[in-house]
């Protein structure tokens, strides 16, 4: 009994998510030996990949001594559960995935999809990285970011809200303040 508890406790999951997009370059990157070795070295034991519309399938593994357990799925209606269970999240740069992860207070590495034509996505990830809310990587630098990251230096993100916008809209339309 005590044994199982110890195993459960020592389980540290890395959750990779690409939302509804197709981002094979990221899945391929996390499936490389150098990234998996770096994750193991940093104490992670499980790698769970949400691959979206992508076609590259990562190599499944049961895990064990000196190897990472790897599993994957395409879509799930319970991304929130996976985020909650994760110790580290590696995500595409979509604002939905970024803010959902930050809301769960999980350490996050955002990887920008360099194949997108209109690549405005890096703006948000870079800004939030400058503000130390997350780490920012490219598929080629992912292993280095994992090696160098210091999760204690990340600053928790405090979600904003829309009341300033609502106030201005109400004022503009001539509604009385309440």
């Amino acid at each position: 009994m005590g044994d199982t508890e110890a195993t459960v406790k020592s389980k540290k999951t890395v959750f990779v998510t690409v939302g509804t997009t197709s981002f094979d370059a990221l899945i391929r990157a996390v499936d490389t030996q150098e990234v998996k070795a770096e994750l193991l070295r940093r104490g992670y034991t499980q790698l769970l990949v949400q691959m979206g519309r992508g076609s590259y399938i990562p190599t499944k593994s049961e895990g064990g001594d000196e190897t990472l357990a790897v599993d994957y799925f395409t879509f799930s209606s319970s991304i929130a559960d996976h985020l909650r269970a994760a110790s580290l999240v590696i995500s595409h740069a979509g604002s939905g995935s970024i803010f959902e992860t930050l809301r769960h207070g999980k350490p996050l590495i955002v990887v920008v999809n360099e194949d997108l034509m209109d690549n405005h996505q890096s703006e948000l990830a870079e800004e939030l990285a400058d503000r130390k809310h997350l780490y920012y990587a490219r598929t080629r630098t992912l292993h280095r970011v994992i090696a160098d990251m210091n999760l204690d230096s990340l600053i928790p993100y405090h979600p904003g809200d829309a009341t300033p916008v609502a106030k201005l809209i109400n004022q503009f339309l001539g509604f009385a303040d309440d």
């Binding site: 939905g96 803010f99 829309a162 339309l173």
Partner: peptide, 19 residues
Amino acid sequence: SGGHTAEMINLLSVLQKDR
């Protein structure tokens, strides 16, 4: 889509529905 809708829903949740 996606992120856009999440932001809009945040705005709608603070706007007075009767107005």
